[in-house]
């Protein structure tokens, strides 16, 4: 919701920059301001007894960071680790974490007026993680709410 609330008073020309990535066949995006870095998948250490959707922890230049497996989180089938697999590291309120995505496709601009509020589009349980759906050249891109992702 964060994203939308911020953008409600925006004028029609205002844009946000987003990182667009793929999970399975779907296209998602996060606000670039919340992204710290994008990295290749590093060696993951499994954490026993961790919540189901936590893939494990990685060593990101001396910091231990948990990785969230969005495939598990969204029930998108098994995560296949390929050459294109990336992690997107973000920080929200002192919590640093990474999400594993199948491919990072582009960084692009999205007009605020092109974002539909999530509740109008989605009716499912997952609506919480989604702050909106953006329309970009005829494609539909799901905008993720990273803060909600951290509430495991």
């Amino acid at each position: 919701m964060e994203l939308l609330a911020e953008n409600q008073n925006a004028t029609s020309t205002e844009e946000i920059q987003v990182v667009v990535f793929k999970l399975g066949q779907e296209e998602y995006a996060v606000d670039i301001l919340s992204v710290q870095e994008i990295n290749k998948l590093l060696r993951v250490t499994r954490v026993p007894k961790a919540p189901y959707c936590i893939e494990g922890v990685i060593n990101l230049r001396g910091n231990v960071i948990p990785l969230i497996n969005l495939h598990k989180r969204f029930g998108l089938g098994k995560l296949e680790k390929t050459e294109e697999t990336r992690i997107i590291v973000f920080e929200y309120q002192d919590i640093r974490a990474g999400i594993i995505v199948d491919e990072v496709t582009e960084v692009s601009r999205l007009k605020v007026t092109d974002i539909e509020q999530a509740s109008r589009v989605y009716g499912s349980l997952d609506a919480d993680f989604i702050s909106g759906v953006g329309k970009m050249d005829g494609r539909l891109i799901i905008l993720l709410n990273l803060a909600k992702l951290l509430e495991i």
């Binding site: 060696r43 060593n59 948990p66």
Partner: peptide, 23 residues
Amino acid sequence: SLGKLLSGIGGLAGATILGDGQV
């Protein structure tokens, strides 16, 4: 520290980074 996200998991006191960079 394992961070807030993974705090409170029984049996784990934290993490460390080994010489080969693995956690």
